[in-house]
Amino acid sequence: MTTTAERGPVRQGRRRALGLITGLGALGLAIPWPRRPSQARPVQRLPSLREADYYRPHELAG
């Protein structure tokens, strides 16, 4: 897992980008993208065990 401290520069870069976007927004250019959906939230790992389509038992040759 990456710690928050390790991610510092990325966050800063993002903030700068956000500043630019807000700046452009102030100029009257609407940039609503990209955004995070408010509904979806990350969860703990939950592997899904849904059976896959398109497979068959493997037959050994010979």
Binding site: R36, R50, A52
Partner: peptide, 13 residues
Amino acid sequence: RATTYGRPSAVHI
């Protein structure tokens, strides 16, 4: 098994 069924790791608009 499809282990990521219903479990996206990227969700954006």
